[in-house]
Write a protein that binds this DNA or RNA. Structure first.
Lengths: 186, 186
DNA sequence: GGATACATGTAAGATGTTACATGATTGT
DNA sequence: ACAATCATGTAACATCTTACATGTATCC
């Protein structure tokens, strides 16, 4: 079974929230907080066709009451297979490798959880994410401190520090998010 | 003139520090803080050949004293064109778009500055980077606070917050790095 | 009448991934 | 003798980018 790209999961997640056309999806990518996805037709339309071929999404049947939509707008919706695949993706355990190499995918998953899986899934996600990040950030920090003490200050070292602090910031976010979600669930 | 990928600049930067073979470069990617670059032969060797074709790097002439290196190890070094292209890349101004969309490339540039350009270039870089980040982080934060007040807490909002705080962490790093480098230059 | 937004697509090209392939050398 | 490491490469494949192409509808 071949992989699914972040773009494809983003499309599926948006279609789960509301059936819509490729053009609608492009506007979302162009104008909302999901700006980091490309809104180019050359990425969206082929991705939609791949998902359709895989049976995850399907074009709405056009109601015969409006027989000829001259703008040939195609509205897609999730199939049951698409729905279950999407939920399975949301529920995957968070691995150390995910936290290190696939941060963007993890945050996309988390963003789509409300409305598709119970809060307990989001809480579990944050718990596993926190664990993985804490362990990795500690290693990185130790590595950095060791390097720091062994050589004079230089831009390479500072760049390394930026990487370490990026993971630490993500960890701080995970802890705060966990606290806020737990308090919200009371 | 076509673009140069981060991987290609990383190879050039490493070759500037020391002439070495594709295998040496792969080991660096596999084992050091530059782990996020792929160490697969299918990316490194073609990239080296592209750089060679462009005239940025060249294979060392084999000294006839060791006529047949049975391991056909090929050591590459920078050409003058490669050197000047690399320095021009390091000296590019930092744009808002760079700070938003190409953080990884910016940090790669910064990491390679020591040894290739004067400290003043690194200081200028950090100043421009700080400006761009500060402006963007402020916009993002305002956007987030507005969204927060308009809807109940949910995972999408929290994911957005993580993005905002990532930029804020990068900004904090830039300010601290600037302070440390200036103090170091005294 | 002209510009802009709606709406979907194709074609060419580059990068990068995984898997496969080859063979020499070094260490045990 | 065998395994691991050294060293380089190719082939197939997938995704994504940019640019091009087409036509409708709406607004001024």
């Amino acid at each position: 079974m071949k992989d699914t790209s972040n773009l494809e999961f983003a499309l599926v997640g948006l279609l789960k929230q509301k059936p819509q056309s490729g053009y609608d999806l492009r506007k979302t990518f162009a104008k909302t907080a999901m700006r980091h996805f490309s809104d180019s037709p050359g990425s969206i339309y082929p991705a939609l066709r791949r998902l359709e071929a895989r049976g995850w999404i399907a074009a709405d049947a056009k109601p015969s009451s409006q027989p000829q939509d001259p703008r040939r707008r195609q509205v897609f919706h999730l199939t049951p297979l698409g729905e279950s695949s999407f939920v399975a993706w949301l529920e995957r355990p968070v691995t150390r490798e995910d936290a290190i190499w696939r941060l963007a995918e993890l945050m996309l998953r988390f963003a789509f959880m409300d409305g598709s899986v119970p809060r307990s899934t989001a809480l579990r996600f944050l718990g596993q994410f926190e664990q993985a990040l804490a362990a990795y950030a500690r290693e990185l920090r130790a590595d950095f401190e060791r390097s720091s003490s062994q050589m004079p200050l230089n831009t390479g070292l500072l760049a390394f520090q930026s990487g370490v602090e990026g993971f630490e910031a993500q960890l701080a976010w995970a802890r705060q998010a966990l606290a806020r979600l737990m308090e919200d669930s009371l």
